[in-house]
C-alpha cells in the first residue's frame, strides 16, 4: 500500500488548473495550424489566424486562453494500492480553489442552478473516479467552458436506428449548434452503456489527443467519416463559413442493453483544455 498525502493532490490540482487554462496542448495547436493550412475560405483563414495568435499570447504571458475558464472537471485514476492520507475529495476542491485564485482564473460556478449565487472560488469541481490496478494516482484537470457545453445533446436511439442513426444524430447536433459553441470544435461522442454512461464517455472522449487514432479500426473509420461530414456543412470557424467546422471527432463506446442505443455528443470549442499528472 502506497501512501499519498492529500496535500500532494491539492498541489497537483492547483498546478493543473493553471496550466490547462493558460497553455493548450501541442496536439491541439498542431491540429489548428494544420487546419489553417488546409482552409480555402479567406474569412475562415482570418479567424484561424486570430485563434493561433490568441494561444500564442496566452503562452507567452501565462494568461488564460479564454475568459470562460470553465467548471473544473477532474478525472482521478486511482491505483487500488494507493491510500490517500486525508480527505481526497476536499483536497481536490482545495486545489481548484487555489488554482483559480492564484492563476487569475474566472470563478464561474453558482451554488445552486436556480438561486444562482456564485460560490466565489469556482468550487465544487466535477470529480470522476476510476479505480485501476497499481499504486499510482493519475489526475486530469479538464476545465470545461459552457458555451460549448450548452450545445451538447444526448439521445436514446433505438437499436433499429443503427449506425446511420448515430451518424445522423452527431451531424445534426453539430449543425444545430452552428456558430454558438465557438467553432472550430472538438466533438466527443459516447455510444452505448446507459443514459449517464454515454454522457460520461462523450466527456472522456474529449480528453483523447486530437492526433490520436481510435484503437478500434471500425470506430477510427467512423471518426474520420463524421469529421468529413461535419466539415462539409460549411459552418466554418465562428460560423462565418468555411471548411474548418470541427478539428476532430473522438468516439468512446461501451456495451449496452439489448433494447438500447444511447448516443451522447459533448461539444468542446477550439479551446479544448486538459492537463494530467501522475503522482
Amino acid at each position: 500500500m502506497r501512501i499519498i498525502k492529500a496535500e500532494q493532490v491539492t498541489q497537483s490540482v492547483r498546478r493543473l488548473c493553471i496550466e490547462a487554462n493558460c497553455h493548450l496542448t501541442d496536439d491541439l495547436k498542431n491540429c489548428i495550424s494544420a487546419c489553417r493550412s488546409c482552409e480555402p475560405f479567406p474569412v475562415a483563414q482570418g479567424i484561424l489566424d486570430q485563434i493561433i495568435e490568441n494561444y500564442q499570447i496566452a503562452d507567452e504571458n501565462n494568461v488564460s486562453v479564454c475568459q470562460d475558464t470553465g467548471m473544473a472537471c477532474v478525472f482521478v485514476e486511482m491505483g487500488q494500492d494507493v491510500h490517500v492520507e486525508g480527505n481526497l475529495e476536499e483536497a481536490i476542491h482545495e486545489g481548484v480553489r487555489q488554482g483559480y485564485a492564484d492563476g487569475y482564473l474566472r470563478k464561474s460556478v453558482v451554488r445552486d442552478p436556480l438561486d444562482r449565487v456564485n460560490t466565489g472560488d469556482n468550487t465544487p469541481a466535477m470529480i470522476y473516479y476510476d479505480i485501476v490496478p497499481g499504486d499510482q494516482l493519475k489526475i486530469t484537470v479538464a476545465p470545461k467552458g459552457f458555451g460549448s457545453e450548452n450545445m451538447s445533446q444526448i439521445k436514446m436511439l433505438k437499436p433499429s436506428d443503427g449506425l446511420d442513426g448515430v451518424k445522423a444524430f452527431v451531424v445534426r447536433v453539430v449543425e444545430e449548434a452552428g456558430p454558438n459553441p465557438c467553432p472550430p470544435i472538438v466533438v466527443g461522442v459516447g455510444v452505448g452503456g446507459t443514459f449517464d454512461k454515454a454522457a460520461l464517455l462523450a466527456k472522456k472522449a474529449l480528453l483523447r489527443p486530437v492526433d490520436s487514432r481510435n484503437d478500434n479500426p471500425f470506430y477510427a473509420a467512423l471518426e474520420d467519416e463524421l469529421l468529413e461530414r461535419i466539415n462539409a456543412l460549411g459552418i466554418g470557424p465562428q460560423g462565418f463559413g468555411g471548411k474548418t467546422t470541427a478539428l476532430k471527432v473522438n468516439i468512446l463506446s461501451c456495451p449496452t442493453h439489448i433494447a438500447g442505443l444511447p448516443v451522447a455528443v459533448n461539444i468542446n470549442c477550439h479551446v479544448t483544455r486538459h492537463q494530467s499528472e501522475v503522482i
Binding site: 479567424i47 486570430q50 485563434i51 495568435e53 490568441n54 494561444y55 499570447i57 496566452a58 504571458n61 494568461v63 488564460s64 486562453v65 479564454c66 475568459q67 470562460d68 458555451g147 456558430p179 465557438c182 465562428q238 462565418f240 470549442c269 477550439h270 479551446v271
Partner: peptide, 13 residues
C-alpha cells in the same frame, strides 16, 4: 457584432 469566441487573451489587448 461578433468578436472571435475563445480569443480572450488577444481581445484583452
Amino acid at each position: 457584432f461578433g468578436a472571435t469566441g475563445g480569443c480572450g487573451a488577444l481581445l484583452s489587448k
